[in-house]
Amino acid sequence: MKFWRRQTSHDIVRDGVVAVFPRLWRYSLTLTGRAEGADDLAQAACLRAIEQADRFEVGTDLAKWMFRIAHNLWISELRKTAVRTGGGLVAIEDADLRDLKPGPEAALLNREVMVAVLRLPEAQRATVVLVYVEGYAYREAAEILDIPIGTVMSRLASARATISRMFEHEKGTRHGR
């Protein structure tokens, strides 16, 4: 049973994929900008993760590793197809978001903010989601995106400036950070 020897990382990946999937799908939606594209990307990333499970370092963050896989897949393969078929780099349209089940009504502002983030340029929205939604430190986001930390910071600055302008009227009532 020669496979038992390296079973640990395989085990962790296999067992972890399902738990990570909702977050992976969300990140995939952020990258692809389309719900359909998110399905393809998230599923392809799961498969790639399982294939390459022996490269996963036991004890490290599985979600982060899978985000990186999704990101690389998106850059290297799927984005090309998406661009060719007219998807991908275009801003998210309302139609794509209408499919998504709405949350409670009290969350209307949250939803507006989410939509605003999803309409940012791809590089910015991916960075915003990794840092403000997934809670990764700049350094970790830089690793996932394979960019310098300075680039993470400038993307966040641009994104923040845009979103801040859009929601200026809300500032009296909500606390920004």
Binding site: R23, K101, V113, Y132, G135, I163
Partner: peptide, 19 residues
């Protein structure tokens, strides 16, 4: 001018987990 409601961002995106 750089301030945004990051909690609203996180909460908004949290609904995507329930899709």
């Amino acid at each position: 001018a750089l301030r945004i409601d990051t909690q609203a961002v996180a909460d908004g995106f949290a609904t995507l987990l329930e899709q």
